[in-house]
Amino acid sequence: MEPIKIKGTDDTPEIMLDAGNDVFEISGRSLPEDVTSFFEPVINWLDEYAENPKPKTEFVFKLTYFNTASSKVLLDILMKLEDISSSGKEVIVKWHYPEDDEDMKEAGEEYADIVDVEFDQLSY
């Protein structure tokens, strides 16, 4: 599978999806002008990956900010990971949050409540 590498900007996150090297990461800030079209390649990539996932997928979220429109798309991504997990593969979400950011920590806890995937909360 072709990896996805998108550089972060002040309103879009950095995205690294590289199954060959076991890198699955979304980091930075997310308030794209057009959320749907920005994340479309990511969703498509995950759909393809879900057809033949690795035995273990460690997906890293290291976001400092996301708007409400992005929060909806993040849930869509997590639900794809849930599908992979329920197909019997190991999936771990690594949710990183700045140690003084209660809201980002809580956002991770809420996602963990909604989707049935193993969640690790990590402060930095």
Partner: peptide, 13 residues
């Protein structure tokens, strides 16, 4: 998400 990318979450947030 609406056509304009609204999630109906703004006020709640």
């Amino acid at each position: 998400l609406s056509e304009k990318g609204g999630a109906g979450l703004g006020f709640i947030d």
